[in-house]
Amino acid sequence: MNASPAPPALRFERVTKRFGKRAALDSLSFEVPQGSLCGFVGANGAGKTTTFAIAGGYCAPDEGVVDVLGGPFDPWRLKGRLGLLPQDADIGDRHTPRELLVHLARLQGMTAAKAGHDASRVLDRVHLDDRADVAIGTLSHGMRRRVAVATALLGSPDLVVLDEPTAGLDPVQVRSLRDVFTQRRPGQTFVVSTHNLDEVERICDYVVFIDQGRLVKQGPIDDVVGRDESAAWVLGAAVPLALLTEVLPGYTLEATGEVLLVRGRDLDAASVHIARVLAEQRIPVREVRRGGSLEERFFGASPGAARPG
């Protein structure tokens, strides 16, 4: 018996949202598979925040269908199953992080005792356990941002959507938050919007590109950057192109100075032959890069991204 594939954790189908005459989303369609860590990438004004606002039920789409964990947004159905960090929502400064988190955890359906316990857990996860009981107004920008991230982690929801969680954070804080994304429980889906493409490439296994409210590209990160399509070898001497062409029939080889670009079906098999030839010729290898960088793909695929936002 064939198991039916798991429904996507988040699905937009031909979703349009207009603010006045401007379409923030223009028939946007994409899917985020369950269990993935998805990078949601787009230039400023591409529609990322609007997409997340619709996913969180803050805005209603003008057209199209939005599925969040198998159905339209519904706070009662999604209670405790969806965590969302809005990009520019103020967490207030009148209460303490613990008070805020306990309140939100209780709204997710937890008992007072469990809410208190879970608030401590997520504060520890964002390294703010020592600031749990001071007024939020006294915290730095980075700390406030981490409190906001902590709200999305309460109860370990099935789907966590984070809109630019690392905006304005220093490298140490960024690194500690990265650990939060990567140490997710099995089956848990994270969707993270960020401008840091290197980070997306390093930690995400799925990526969605949008530009001017439309989908540009989506898929597993290996497919998007073409890790199975090409490899670039940076050598320490001129490329022995004739020798390599001889041992690699069926592959397309290009040499530009000391850089060899290989295209073909089985790049793993090709790499064995290339390594052997280079070893015989005593040519050192400085770097091997599979596929293009996400940045190259992003600028290649997003016409709007090249313009300053």
């Binding site: 706070p75 809005p86 103020d90 805020l100 939100l104």
Partner: peptide, 16 residues
């Protein structure tokens, strides 16, 4: 005030 600062979104995600 909370709609202006969008602080209301934290609660609206979790209740009606």
């Amino acid at each position: 005030e909370d709609v202006r600062t969008r602080a209301v979104r934290f609660e609206l995600l979790r209740t009606g």
